[in-house]
Design a protein around this nucleic acid. Sequence first.
DNA 1: CTAGGTGCAAATAGTTTGCAACTAC
DNA 2: GTAGTTGCAAACTATTTGCACCTAG
Lengths: 132, 132
Amino acid sequence: MLRSRGLRLTAQRQLILEAVHDLGHATPEQVHNAVREVAAGVNITTIYRTLELLEELGLVTHTHLSHGSPTFHPVTDDQHVHLVCRSCKAVSEMDPALAEPLITALAKDRGFQVDIGHMALFGTCERCGDKS
Amino acid sequence: MLRSRGLRLTAQRQLILEAVHDLGHATPEQVHNAVREVAAGVNITTIYRTLELLEELGLVTHTHLSHGSPTFHPVTDDQHVHLVCRSCKAVSEMDPALAEPLITALAKDRGFQVDIGHMALFGTCERCGDKS
DNA sequence: CTAGGTGCAAATAGTTTGCAACTAC
DNA sequence: GTAGTTGCAAACTATTTGCACCTAG
């Protein structure tokens, strides 16, 4: 798959892709930590470069979940929309089917194609909502 | 309004709030530039501190629109959802009413209260979609 | 007068880039 | 062998913090 592009399959790339899959969604730094547990010497720079590459290949995507760093997640499994609680920072996922009507309406009315993989909703989760 | 909190009304604060209203949505840096046109000496630090303050007071909010810096916009006018084209970077707005069903469903099914002001959808706008 | 604000400089955090050493193919 | 990769250090950009000076009330 990499080879078909004239690119090389290296240990680092495998580890990083694996880490993204294991973590589900993670910042570059979290990926770095995960990878380091297996191969200590891997540099953060490589994480960035590889994530960018994997994204180009369509193997992962990223979303911006409030706090600075972007969050990467594998593309393979079904699309999912992130729900981020701004109080407890928990990230959960929802079925994109719920957003279907909205997405269809936007495409029809304005010709805007929503990228579901990058979609994130901020708000307050049940637990935090109860407290307040 | 500020005074009721024991805070002071300064020229900088007025200018910054005004800039956010004028710009509609802008990054801290854009606000800085706008403010500087009127009062050259204002420091970027003050922009950050004031935006944070204004957010606490509920006068502005911010959203994360892909690229690093957050985007601030006034809270006063009706809520609006941002549509960000990942190709041409254009930011437009949509009527939050379109998202109502989704929001209601989430509240009912999972108790998740979506913060509409922070909502942003990424994708491809009509113009860029045509080209590809 | 004095608590709250501001500017400045330095510290941090996150990300990118140049380059020499390294290795998959 | 060689082009693609990586690690390291340095450069950047975005944001935060400490502190002395300043000013609205």
